[in-house]
């Protein structure tokens, strides 16, 4: 049953995401790819949309993936809507229950030393996962064949130009404004550059 699966997969995402939105991206990506729900390209597009619309990135991505999968499985708009609801409910449920328990019963739970040890201990693991995921995304932009074969051939020069332009833009902005460019500004600028580099 696709809807139960959507719900459960996103419960897993909600339960194993530490360190905010960016910690969730590798897990959602892995879930989406291993279930063959959508291509890696479409998934990164969705991330772009999720980051430039209001609301938590995790919830946005869940809603989007749910609609796509539900619509594919049932072929109806209502299937898509129900898929969105299941995935969004799934990603929210673990936090809701955990926080309710902490708020109601376990106010001191977070201060317990073993709990802190575990919460701090998973951080380096998550940083490693996030950084390698980012590097993989760069590589996938540069070598479009990477997803199918593991040969680093067929360098996409336009992607290289994009990477250099955005990198230069972001560091220039940082030097000028003394703070990093916001996600939404980066995405909007990249969209305009994308049209310029890849053509109309």
């Amino acid at each position: 049953m696709i809807f139960l699966r959507l719900f459960l997969e996103f419960v897993k995402v909600g339960l194993f995401t530490f360190g905010g939105a960016y910690g969730s991206i590798p897990i959602i990506r892995e879930t989406v790819l291993s279930n063959a729900w959508m291509s890696d390209d479409l998934f990164t597009y969705i991330l772009g949309v999720s980051e430039s619309t209001p609301g938590p990135i995790m919830v946005n991505t869940a809603t989007y993936v749910g609609n796509t999968v539900g619509m594919q499985a049932t072929g109806t708009v209502w299937g898509g809507f129900f898929g969105s609801v299941c995935a969004t409910l799934g990603v929210v449920t673990p936090s809701f229950i955990i926080i309710l328990l902490i708020a109601a019963l376990l106010r001191r739970f977070m201060e317990k030393k073993p709990v802190r040890a575990v919460l701090d201990g998973v951080k380096p693991c998550i940083v490693g996962i996030i950084l390698i995921t980012a590097i993989h995304l760069f590589a996938a932009c540069l070598f479009p064949g990477l997803a199918n074969s593991f040969r680093l051939s067929g360098l996409d020069t336009r992607a290289l130009i994009m990477i250099l332009l955005i990198g230069a833009g972001r560091s220039g902005w940082k030097m000028w404004k003394k703070r990093a460019a916001s996600p939404i500004l980066t995405i909007l600028a990249a969209a305009v550059l994308g049209v310029a580099v890849y053509g109309v």
Binding site: Y22, I25, D41, T44, Y45, L47, G48, E51, I130, L131, T133, A134, I135, L137, F138, C141, A159, M162, I163, I166, G167, R170, P183, T186, I187, A189, A190, A191, V192, L193, G194, V195, V197, Y198, G199, V200
Partner: peptide
């Protein structure tokens, strides 16, 4: 084309 550009931005934001 715009989304191909956005893809690169997403990689930057994640890194």
């Amino acid at each position: 084309s715009a989304f191909k550009g956005i893809r690169v931005a997403v990689a930057y934001l994640i890194i």
